[in-house]
Nucleic acid binder design. Structure first.
Lengths: 137, 137
DNA sequence: ATTTTACCCTACTTAATTAATAGGGTATGC
DNA sequence: GCATACCCTATTAATTAAGTAGGGTAAAAT
């Protein structure tokens, strides 16, 4: 299941991407528009800022803004920052690999090979989808 | 993330599918072979039996066995029984649909549409993969 | 008939994670 | 210098995952 953190994060990002100009948007504005708890959203946007997706400005007229063009923000990076691994099992993860305790041979493991297929197809979607693509809905 | 329940369940099913004859296999045998906690595996196999995937026989010489041919057991049904929804958000689920609290219009929701794509591609893999296919590894 | 085998079932527990909430601190602009 | 709006840490309630405990029951072997 996708966490609310990721869901809210993506919604906030599309909100920012839809802005005409690049002036900062306040957390409270996004919070109200997207029905997201203000404090929870605050921590999510902070995470995105720390990972180089967003910039921020303090004080009056401050807020958050995208650091790159929406077309250059891939869903793979957003998912990895907010949700963590894209694969369903650590043993097929590219960025968060971990060996299974119970499994002596990965290549002979049915679960491994099935989840490898799932990861590949999911990854392909995330790689081919940018924030700009999401805004077309 | 895939739960251990599902992972162990799939491993146990492939173990049963690989049997030459259709004589029942004891829980303890699978438990040892696949490095799965006996009691945990017991509850998993019970779930699979209650959902019509496995049959069981009590007493000496008893155990669990597949009710259908491995080629007729789709991964979609196994995933739904053990893991639950295949989609990452309830609002794109075919079998476990739920409306989002925060979202006024699903069709305009970026997360919804992205996860719809992911669900479709994942579903296609699970539909095209049978237990027999898993055993080919 | 009795014993052994092996599944059947309920309840409990521990740890981790999620989704917040609380409560201040700090930089910025007017 | 004061209001604004982000920055940061800590705490918490609820849920789920992953087992663990302990006994019950049906079937087969003796």
């Amino acid at each position: 299941m996708l966490s609310k953190k990721t869901k809210y994060g993506i919604k906030a990002l599309t909100y920012l991407a839809k802005q005409e100009n690049k002036t900062p948007v306040q957390i409270a504005t996004i919070s109200k528009s997207e029905n997201i708890s203000l404090k929870f959203l605050e921590s999510i946007l902070l995470t995105l800022r720390k990972n180089g997706v967003l910039g921020s400005k303090k004080g009056k007229g401050g807020g958050y803004y995208l650091l790159k063009d929406p077309s250059e923000i891939q869903m793979t990076s957003i998912m990895r920052i907010l949700e963590g691994p894209i694969s369903m099992v650590p043993c097929v993860s590219l960025n968060f690999y971990e060996k299974c305790d119970d499994c002596p041979d990965e290549n002979a493991c049915a679960v491994h090979n099935l989840m490898l297929e799932v990861r590949d197809s999911t990854l392909q979607i995330f790689r081919n989808t940018s924030l700009a693509d999401l805004c077309k809905c």
